[in-house]
Design a binder for these strands. Sequence first.
DNA 1: TCAGATTTGGACCGATCGGTACAGACCCGC
DNA 2: GCGGGTCTGTACCGATCGGTCCAAATCTGA
Lengths: 203, 203
Amino acid sequence: MARTTARRDQVLPALAELFREHGYHGTSLAHVTAATGLGKGSIYNFFPGGKDEMAAAVLSHVDDWFERQVFAPLAAAGDLAAGPQAGPAAAVEDMFASVTDYFRSGQRVCLVGAFALGDARDAFASRIDAYFARWIAALSRALQAGGIAPGMADDLAEEAVAVIQGAIVLARTNRSDGAFARVTGGQKRRLLDALKAAGRASA
Amino acid sequence: MARTTARRDQVLPALAELFREHGYHGTSLAHVTAATGLGKGSIYNFFPGGKDEMAAAVLSHVDDWFERQVFAPLAAAGDLAAGPQAGPAAAVEDMFASVTDYFRSGQRVCLVGAFALGDARDAFASRIDAYFARWIAALSRALQAGGIAPGMADDLAEEAVAVIQGAIVLARTNRSDGAFARVTGGQKRRLLDALKAAGRASA
DNA sequence: TCAGATTTGGACCGATCGGTACAGACCCGC
DNA sequence: GCGGGTCTGTACCGATCGGTCCAAATCTGA
């Protein structure tokens, strides 16, 4: 691996936390220097396109994680011909465990969702769209493999992703002791119940 | 009414749209001038505390609307001794209709939720907390008046508010044709079903 | 009409912004 | 050791930022 790429990849997690905390506009290069130890020269060496390129790299980084830890396992559970893998119910459970861990029970913002709410949305529309589309499609696929009808699987998947996003918002308020766990736990139960009712929820 | 207050109140809707579109950090005084027609002198005359005071005024403005159109009707439906008013089921239906209209089927950001996700949260924590707490409490109260047990009513109310917030996030992506309506419609159905099952869902 | 109150425009301020440029420092393989 | 490639620090730039200030314009009630 080229050294620029290696060094660049190493700063992406810190960059991601900055964008989560301050948003696109509120994140300055001074913040980046403080969080990464990189001076201006280095920042522009790694990200010649500047702030836009940093945000895009961070979104790709987040997307890669989700692809490996959430989307691909769901899609694999939805692909019955692919060989031994977790069944739909286990995949759903794993998904909720992964996102609970990644979002730190809601204390850590979903960067893609936060960008969707602001004016950075336009600059990164295709990435944002693809992330949610992929998530919902992979989850729907796993639900269908568990016997749920396609339309209902789409609706349940869409709702589950919305619930997770909304649970993060609620978790960011002080009245929110355990809100993330309660809300996502309820949604997980709903998905598992639907799989059980469809009768093919093998583990 | 004093003229400063009148003029000041008149610019709050435009200010709110700015903060929704650009967020706290991305909203500049140049934006404010362009959107309101006010020059610097006028802006500081109306909001001597500057940007913080503008954001706080806008949050209050949003909160006032929700109090009148959403929270108070829910609370009234929950207060059986208060005289004639809509029953719990009708109040729930009205709530969904109001938020669908207000959030323009998800095309308009919930400013309180968006602030909750960013670093403006700390400055406005008590307002943000109070908004969500009030919403959930009022909805829970209406559900309880419809016969739903307190714990379950709390959970359903919390989930409903999370779903609405998450539906807004999803509605902001291009794959989102009708997503807001589908997701909130599903949640409304769930609340109405729970009220029916509790047997006191009088209109 | 007039005086006092209120509102306004915009000059000015210091600070910060993202970005450019590049010489010097550093790294690495031959 | 050397040369080429990569990385770094920082001076510099024009632009923009939020806020201060105040004279002029406007409003209002007597």
